[in-house]
Each structure stands twice: as structure tokens, then as C-alpha cells.
């Protein structure tokens, strides 16, 4: 474990908590893409199946359980509890166009052709594009509540910090995982446009308004 990965995980944890609190406190999921949250639930389910087979550490196990639980709780809040506030009209990204390529790519490029490994690889590829429905929704509505942009900033930072962790691990432990690294870079690059808007606007107290 290193400081980059720890802060990355904490940023990830913070993002999930911000989102849960926003939906719970405002009793509304307006502006939130339920499709991205479904993709995240799929990402954690397919990645953390090894919860039952390999024990890495108490930290690792606890975080996996929290990410699994919170992702399903978020999907439940959006599609069941606060269904009336879910914005169907703007959450229209076709997620099958993200899932299918991830499945095909995971079958073609992986570390080992075993069920657990293929599912892990699928989860890595899917996570790199899972935020697209949310970013697409923000571009369609042309704006995002500041709490939603804080959520996106924390979520985008987590994988960016993981890139620093991978550099650190390569330098210190000569350990690297190209699949995770390439997908992580793609994932972080997808946020760049948002990061620019967040830093130039939201941090100056303005609302996140995308040029129409």
C-alpha cells in the first residue's frame, strides 16, 4: 500500500458517500445517471468475486464490501425509492454499447483465460467507460448541481491517483499491470474536460454550465 493508492481509495470512498448523501438528503436523484450507477454495480460485482476466494487484507475486504453495498444501495435509491425523481429523458446513453465491447475486449486481451480473470478484466475495461452516461447526461442537461460536480471530481481523481500509485509501484516494486494502467489512463482522460470546467468554474463558486 502507498500514499497514492490510499488517497485514491479515500477519494473513491468520498465520491460514493457524497453521492449517497446527495440523493438521501435531497430525496432526489435529479441530474444523476442511473445507467452509470448500474455500470458501477456491474463493475464491482464482476471485480470483487474474489472476495470469497482470496483474502488480501482486512482493508481490502472491508472496502470491497462497502463498494458493493453502496453501489447497490445507490441503484436502489435511484430506481426504486426515488424513482419519481429519476430523469429518464436525459439519461439515454445506450450502455449495451459499453458492455459489449468490454466483454469482447476482455475475451481477447487478458492475463489468463479463466472465469475469474476474464470477469476481472471485463470489470477493468467497463469501469474505464462507466462514467460516460453520467458525463453524457451532464452535457445534455448542460449543467450539473455543484454537489454532483464534487462527486465527479472525487470519482475522477481516484483513478488519477491510481496512476501515480502504478508509477510508484513500478519504480519501487517493479510491479505493473498494463491492463489496469491503460484502462486507468483512458478512464482519467475521459474526465479531463470535466476537470477543466470544475477547476475554472465550480471552484470559483460558479455553477457548472457547459457551453450549450
Amino acid at each position: 500500500m502507498n500514499i497514492f493508492r490510499l488517497t485514491g481509495d479515500l477519494a473513491h470512498l468520498l465520491a460514493i458517500i457524497i453521492l449517497l448523501l446527495k440523493i438521501w438528503k435531497t430525496r432526489s436523484c435529479a441530474g444523476i445517471s442511473g445507467k452509470s450507477q448500474i455500470l458501477f454495480a456491474i463493475v464491482y460485482t464482476t471485480r470483487y468475486l474474489d472476495l470469497v476466494t482470496t483474502y488480501v487484507s482486512a482493508y481490502n475486504t472491508l472496502m470491497k464490501i462497502f463498494f458493493l453495498g453502496s453501489s447497490f444501495a445507490t441503484v436502489y435509491l435511484i430506481y426504486v425509492k426515488f424513482k419519481a425523481t429519476y430523469d429518464h429523458n436525459h439519461d439515454t446513453f445506450r450502455i449495451e454499447f459499453l458492455i459489449l465491447p468490454a466483454v469482447i475486449l476482455a475475451l481477447l486481451i487478458n492475463h489468463a483465460f479463466t472465469p475469474l480473470e476474464i470477469l476481472w478484466t471485463f470489470s477493468i475495461y467497463l469501469e474505464s467507460v462507466a462514467i460516460l452516461p453520467q458525463l453524457f447526461m451532464v452535457s445534455k442537461t448542460g449543467e450539473a448541481e455543484s454537489i454532483t460536480s464534487h462527486y465527479l471530481f472525487a470519482l475522477g481523481s481516484y483513478r488519477g491517483l491510481y496512476i501515480l500509485n502504478w508509477i510508484y509501484r513500478y519504480a519501487m516494486e517493479s510491479h505493473y499491470d498494463l491492463i489496469a494502467i491503460v484502462a486507468g489512463i483512458v478512464q482519467t482522460v475521459l474526465y479531463c474536460d470535466f476537470f477543466y470546467l470544475y477547476i475554472t468554474k465550480v471552484l470559483k463558486g460558479k455553477k457548472l454550465q457547459l457551453p450549450a
Partner: peptide, 10 residues
């Protein structure tokens, strides 16, 4: 036999 790399990251 390719040892399955243990994924120790989240």
C-alpha cells in the same frame, strides 16, 4: 500453468 496474478488493488 500461468499463475493467476493476485489482484491486490481495489
Amino acid at each position: 500453468y500461468v499463475a493467476r496474478p493476485v489482484h491486490d488493488e481495489l
